[in-house]
Each structure stands twice: as structure tokens, then as C-alpha cells.
Write a protein that binds this DNA or RNA. Structure first.
Length: 234
DNA sequence: AATTCGCTCAACCGCATTAGG
DNA sequence: TCCTAATGCGGTTGAGCGAAT
């Protein structure tokens, strides 16, 4: 019979939030903290569904939101993160303090996409536009020595599928798109400075590999290789 | 002044994932 | 281990606004 609706649609408000609703939500969260969104509307005296309350709080009412225009640095960071993570807006937002996934997604769709196109870069693949017009490119995230057992291929059990994979390899024999991300080449990487309270990229994604991680700075990919299989596992 | 057009962004929807019994 | 409810996420929509005609 399918899943029951997240709320009683007949008795909930929709559309723009009023000032009074905002105030009720803020007051309730200040008093009781975040969480238990399902029961929050009733407890706060709001005729909204829990999802709507959560979204309103996260995207608009949270006190730590930055708001305002994105800086050039933020734009470039979003572009870099998007080239690594794709449309994983919540992960990208995790690297931009004070910005929400919704805000970044909107900014990407309205500004950054256009910016990249004007540079002649495909916003989806992050490759020059005239390059991919001639061929379809399959990006492999696996390490060479793990072919056949790595991320994206563990389900390839049948011989038919593996031969398809071999054919793809034959089509592009010189194409090696192993994703290997190194730490940024900066002065800082030559003279590591310990920044307290900052997490490396892996840690912030929950990929920390305990003894290897030093968390020395921004986007320091501790193992120098972002293992996408771990991303999938986590 | 009225209308149209394009842009922005808050909010919604549906699916995926996670947590708990 | 399975099932259900709750939460999270990404794609999409549409109201509101300013600029252009």
C-alpha cells in the first residue's frame, strides 16, 4: 500500500513561511534543540510538516548561516569540489561554512554553470566543451591493480559484462582517468602548519584513516588518493 | 503605465538511506 | 534479518522581483 504520507496534508500549511511561523520555529528549537522533526510541528504549534520545518531551519533560520553573495574564492572552491564530488551538494556544503546545500545548488545552477560555459568548460564533466563532443568518455575511479574488484565493478560478475568493459578499454587504450588527488601545491604544504579545529577532506567526509590522517589543513587529502570505494561504503 | 521576459531562490516532492524495534 | 518510520538528499517548481520593451 505504499508509505504513509509524512504528514496530514489536509491540515498543514504550504508555501512561504510567515514571520510568526518563523518565530515559533526558532523559539521551539532554541528551547528544545534540533531533531525529532516529525513531532516538532505539533509541539511548536505549527501547521507544517516536519520536513518543511527542517528545511526552513536548515536553509533559512539557522543562526550560523552566512547569506549574501558568494565570493570569488567560494565559487572556485565549489567548482573544484563539484569536479571531485559531482552533485553531492550536502558534501560540498560541508566544506563551505555558513552555506547550505540548497543555496549552493541554486548558485551552481544560476551562476556557476554559466561561468563555466563562458570559459568553454562543460559544467557536468569539467572538461573542455569541444573535447567531449567527439567521444563518450567513461571515467574509471578504480586503481589499476584492482581492476575487476574495485568500486563500480564489483557487480560485474557475468562474462558478458566483463567483455563489454574490455571493449571499452580497447576503444580508448590511452585513456587513463584514474582519479588521483594530491594535496594542494602551496607554500603551506612545504611547511605544514598545524591548524587546530580544521578537518581534512577525508575526515569531514567520514573517511578518516586514523593513523595516516594528520588533518593539517584545508582540503588536505591525507592519503593523497581519494578512494571512491570508501565513499560508497560510507 | 502596462506587459513581457528572465532571473533568483525558497519551498516542495519523491526517492534513498538510516535507525530502531 | 526484516520491516517500518524518520530523516536526508537532490531535482524541480513556481512566486516574486526587477529590467526591458
Amino acid at each position: 500500500m505504499g508509505r504513509s504520507p509524512c504528514c496530514e496534508k489536509a491540515h498543514t500549511n504550504k508555501g512561504a513561511w510567515t514571520k510568526e511561523e518563523d518565530e515559533r520555529l526558532i523559539a521551539h528549537i532554541r528551547a528544545h534543540g534540533e531533531g525529532c522533526w516529525r513531532s516538532l510541528p505539533k509541539a511548536a504549534g505549527l501547521l507544517r510538516c516536519g520536513k518543511s520545518c527542517r528545511l526552513r531551519w536548515i536553509n533559512y533560520l539557522r543562526p550560523d548561516l552566512k547569506r549574501g553573495n558568494f565570493t570569488e574564492d567560494e565559487d572556485e572552491l565549489i567548482i573544484k569540489l563539484h569536479s571531485l564530488l559531482g552533485n553531492k551538494w550536502s558534501l560540498i556544503a560541508g566544506r563551505l561554512p555558513g552555506r547550505t546545500d540548497n543555496e549552493i545548488k541554486n548558485h551552481w545552477n544560476t551562476h556557476i554553470k554559466r561561468k563555466l560555459l563562458s570559459r568553454g568548460v562543460d559544467p557536468t564533466t569539467h572538461r573542455p566543451i569541444n573535447e567531449h563532443a567527439s567521444s563518450n568518455i567513461t571515467i574509471s575511479f578504480e586503481r589499476r591493480e584492482e581492476k575487476g574488484a574495485g568500486f563500480g565493478h564489483e557487480e560485474r560478475s557475468s562474462s558478458e559484462e566483463s567483455s563489454t568493459w574490455r571493449q571499452q578499454q580497447l576503444k580508448c587504450p590511452d585513456l587513463n582517468l584514474e582519479l588521483c588527488i594530491g594535496p594542494p601545491v602551496q607554500q603551506e604544504s612545504l611547511e605544514p602548519v598545524k591548524r587546530e579545529g580544521t578537518l581534512c577532506f577525508s575526515c569531514s567526509l567520514g573517511l578518516q584513516k586514523s593513523n595516516e590522517c594528520k588533518c593539517n589543513g584545508f582540503l588536505c587529502l591525507s592519503t593523497a588518493v581519494l578512494d571512491y570505494r570508501s565513499l560508497k561504503m560510507n
